Amino acid sequence: MRDKKTAALFLSLALACSVNITAFAADESPKTVDQIGGSAVANVTGTYKEGQSGAARYKVDIAWTDLSFTYTSGSEGTWDPDTHTYNGATEGGWGSQSGTITVTNHSNAGITATPAYEAKTGYESAGMEFTETSLQLGTADNGNGENGAGKETGGILTVTPTGTLPENTNGATIGTITVTITASEQAGN
């Protein structure tokens, strides 16, 4: 009989504890439930706050092939004393020489790479021509890599010499190419 009394005591205590429940909400006054099956209601509020997107972080690799070019002057050809003319005349020029600039974007934002050539004083007769006036590369935050990670994006600009060089130019720095990186709205790859 003692076990029945103990069990009844615990059941009574549990019931008493469950009847006197007070619930609080931040903007409401306390509510008291005084019977089994009663309930208390509290309003739940929520606010959506725009999270910060990751700030743009830029890392762009720029690689050049050798940008040493040779200009060959024109030739009158070889004098033919029998015909009194020159044979095999050639025009001066750069031939089919070119170089490349490779741009690789590892940033979480799109970029634009813009090349420009500036001749050094005394070599203004030479220039450089680019296949593109600018190269737009999408973000590396594109999910195209292994396991859904991003993958770098890239492109190549071809550089071709134009114009002429002064006589006796031998390995001189005739100009500089600058590639300027700016932010771009382009996304994707």
Rank of each mutant, 00 (worst) to 15 (best):
T112H: 00
T83R: 02
I36Y: 10
T131H: 04
K120E: 15
N43C: 01
T180P: 01
C17K: 07
F24L: 15
G150N: 11
T32S: 11
T169I: 06
T65P: 01
V44I: 14
A56Q: 08
A25Q: 09
T114I: 01
F130H: 01
K4Y: 13
G37R: 03
I111W: 00
N108G: 04
E146L: 12
L11A: 14
I101Q: 02
K120H: 09
K31Y: 07
G188V: 04
N87M: 12
A7W: 10
A187G: 15
G148Q: 12
V179G: 01
E50W: 02
I111M: 02
M128R: 05
G92S: 09
T153A: 05
T121C: 05
G175Q: 09
P161M: 00
A183E: 14
L13H: 06
D66H: 06
R57D: 12
G188Y: 10
E28T: 14
T139M: 03
G46F: 05
Y58R: 11
L11V: 13
G74R: 10
I156D: 07
G122L: 13
V33T: 14
I36N: 07
H106M: 08
A56H: 07
L137N: 02
N43P: 03
G150A: 07
G148Y: 11
G148N: 10
G93Y: 04
T65A: 04
E76V: 01
Y86I: 03
E152F: 11
T100A: 06
T45A: 09
F10C: 09
Y123W: 14
S98M: 04
V60K: 00
E28C: 06
S39V: 07
Q97Y: 05
P166K: 14
V60M: 06
I181K: 11
G171S: 12
G51K: 14
E152I: 05
I181E: 10
T104Q: 08
N43D: 12
Q35N: 13
N142F: 03
A40H: 03
D3N: 12
T100Y: 02
F24I: 10
I21S: 08
G95E: 00
A183V: 08
S18C: 13
E50K: 15
T114G: 00
I156C: 02
